[in-house]
Design a protein around this nucleic acid. Structure first.
Length: 264
DNA sequence: GCGCTTGTTAAAGT
DNA sequence: AACTTTAACAAGCG
């Protein structure tokens, strides 16, 4: 589930549960998610404490008392679960941090696209990956310029983490639905006011999604995503036409062909 | 069994 | 050379 709002939930959850407790043990249940860094992870974190966290797009960085930085990325499926060590571990737990207070934090990744590992520092990681500014932080001018610099369709540009970090598949669809712009449109063909609308809708959708704790069913009824993404027939909350399911940039894409205009 | 999936990236293409 | 597009990754789910 993790796009920016979900990862923000995980960050808050992490801070509420896992800070300032001594890490007594780390269990790697699936080496692949730590990219062969299992031993390194144990060496660098056992005995240490988590002191705080910072989110950049879909990346969650965790700092420790001994000044180490751990990066968690959740891929297409993943979350964190904190529980008493006497409880059964969650299904698909891949890495488990045990704390001295008898509780543990499980990094859960069902489809194994998530990654967890040590990084030297946040800034150089972001710069190496060429990540754009976080979608909650980026200014209108910065977003508009970054979009205009891309020569690909607007949906692909919004999903491009070097443009802005944090937009995922459903949010890209929702931004374009609310902006009334068809996903295959090219940024260079959009009017300045339309790019401004995209910026405003992106900010609003992120804010609203965080307010409802990233639970999609709790999104407002005028959001297309509110109705789910695989129901047989979804109707446009504006014009009642059937929502189209297509593929744009290799991703399943939902859009209203009658009230989203195409500028290709 | 088939096709789908909320992400990223290496490889291929332009 | 630099940017864009595609295929692949893994595995559960309906």
């Amino acid at each position: 589930m993790p796009e920016l709002p979900e990862v923000e939930m995980y960050r808050l959850y992490f801070d509420e549960t896992s800070l300032l407790q001594k890490i007594s043990d780390i269990e790697i249940l699936h080496p692949k998610v730590v990219g062969g860094q299992g031993e390194l992870l144990k060496e660098q974190l056992t005995g240490d404490q988590f002191t705080g966290s910072r989110r950049w797009g879909k990346n969650l960085f965790v700092n420790t008392k001994l000044n180490q930085t751990l990066l968690m990325h959740f891929g297409m499926t993943g979350n964190l679960e904190y529980s008493n060590a006497s409880m059964e571990l969650p299904k698909y737990a891949r890495v488990v941090f045990s704390f001295q207070n008898g509780f543990n934090l499980a990094y859960v990744s069902k489809r194994m696209f998530g990654r967890l590992g040590m990084v030297t520092d946040i800034e150089s990681y972001i710069s190496n990956k060429s990540l754009g500014l976080d979608a909650l932080e980026i200014s209108e001018e910065q977003l508009v310029n970054a979009l205009a610099a891309k020569n690909k369709n607007i949906k692909g540009a919004l999903l491009d983490q070097t443009v802005t970090a944090g937009v995922g598949n459903w949010i890209a669809d929702e931004i374009l639905f609310q902006s009334r712009i068809y996903p295959t449109s090219l940024p260079k063909n959009l009017h300045p006011e339309q790019l401004q609308t995209i910026f405003e809708k992106m900010k609003e959708i992120m804010k609203v999604a965080i307010e409802v704790d990233a639970i999609r069913a709790d999104l407002p009824a005028h959001y297309i995503t509110h109705y789910g993404r695989k129901t047989a027939s979804i109707h446009c909350p504006r014009c009642k036409n059937e929502i189209e399911k297509t593929e744009v940039g290799g991703r399943g894409t939902y859009a209203c062909g009658s009230c989203q205009a195409e500028y290709s």
